[in-house]
Design a protein around this nucleic acid. Structure first.
Lengths: 233, 233
DNA sequence: TAGGATTTGTGCGTATGTATT
DNA sequence: TAATACATACGCACAAATCCT
């Protein structure tokens, strides 16, 4: 192997994304979105060929996306069987929730970003969205607001590794969360989400990241408890 | 997409690893080991074809391994250029260390495992290995003991997601750690590692996971501080 | 500026494993 | 039990991008 250091072309440092890289990211985010929005519910089977045709690429680059989702625990591929959306066990689910509860407070400890007016407006908007959600509760609408809320919170730290870890474990549990609930519970969870966002919005208005992070932890803990009571831990 | 649940073949539940899966893991661990042991130092270039020939497979399954290492931040591939071992920036390095410091105490909070006689023997062995290391300090020997120590610590929690997160961020910094140091510093770092292992061994003997986890955090913090002083933060 | 050498990215045919009939 | 259908895994040839002369 060549061990020479590359010491050239430090001129731009612009991090331009290659065409292949952009295409990868778009397909990746689309499929992950479909999983987290329950369009591909846990246990469902995906077809490499069908997805490749849909996105207008061959199986090769598409498989690269599936490998990534597989390494993140969202998919499982078995030769001769197919690619299945991971249906995480209850025990594994609790473990991920335990870790998420510990990661939440780190938002205010590791390179917290100052809360801007845009951030406050963002939480206000999400708060209003959750209000609409109560009037017309749907699993899809809940997931949309829930995911947007996560990203609003995760963007409050400048620590990239922490943000990535939070994202990884959020998406591992995002899809399974609603799957375990009935139609009545969806309505109840929408109200819970509304209360969460009211707390988040108030903490954001006084620009208190520490309060925000611990509210996040508290609500994550409450979600885990409701899940445990529902599934019987 | 087929959304039918798979409700069959729950008989064995043995999680037998497929031939492809086993080969993937072996190649993956071998290449990651070479990176973390500085056989492939940061900035060096890897050849897909050469590695494929060495492991007796085609480029396709080998690229799957490189994709995984790429997603974990250990490699970076650019079309027309090659696959380069990631040379993490100082700022990113500090961010990973910050997160590692926060993850360490979770060892005793999230599903800690009881310390067995085998665990104690393991730390005793590592302690003696570090003693030998001082007599004949080498970068390679340091890395071997350092990596083994990490796994001994990480195995003390039954929380798989936490263990995976610790592993990810450890290997992201394992290779870069010694790269920044001169020959004199290697000798000094071997002595530091010896002191760490003395502490770890004593805490293990009294079966105190909490002490162990906070000693780990303390030594990780000290490493980050020495690194900052060396590189100028 | 241009062109050739080298490397990763892509497309596709085939091999291999699984489940069903 | 055997054969068939169908899924992912693999190998190889070619396209596209970059670097160097």
């Amino acid at each position: 192997m060549d061990k020479s250091q590359s010491k050239k072309s430090r001129d731009t440092e612009k991090k331009v994304e290659s065409a292949a890289g952009r295409r990868f990211r778009q397909i990746y985010e689309e499929i992950r979105s479909r999983i987290s929005l329950l369009e591909y519910p846990p246990g469902s089977r995906l077809s490499e060929e069908a997805l490749a045709d849909e996105f207008g690429v061959s199986r090769t680059p598409l498989r690269r996306v599936l490998f990534r989702l597989q390494s993140e625990g969202l998919l499982e591929s078995v030769q001769g069987v197919g690619t299945i959306v991971t249906d995480i066990s209850n025990d594994d689910l609790y473990q991920v929730y335990q870790l998420r509860m510990e990661l939440a407070p780190l938002l205010a400890r590791l390179s917290p970003l100052p809360i801007t007016d845009e951030t406050i407006a963002q939480f206000e908007d999400l708060y209003h969205q959750s209000e609409e959600l109560i009037k017309k509760p749907t699993a899809h609408g809940y997931c949309v607001v829930n995911i947007a809320t996560f990203h609003a919170l995760a963007n409050l730290t400048a620590n990239a590794p922490l943000r990535k870890a939070m994202e990884l474990h959020f998406y591992q549990t995002a899809s399974i969360w609603l799957k375990s609930l009935g139609e009545d519970d969806v309505s109840q969870e929408c109200r819970n989400l509304h209360h969460e966002l009211r707390d988040f919005y108030h903490a954001a208005r006084i620009r208190d990241v520490d309060a925000l992070s611990h509210l996040w932890r508290a609500h994550t803990s409450a979600s885990a408890t409701r899940l445990r009571q529902k599934l019987g831990g």
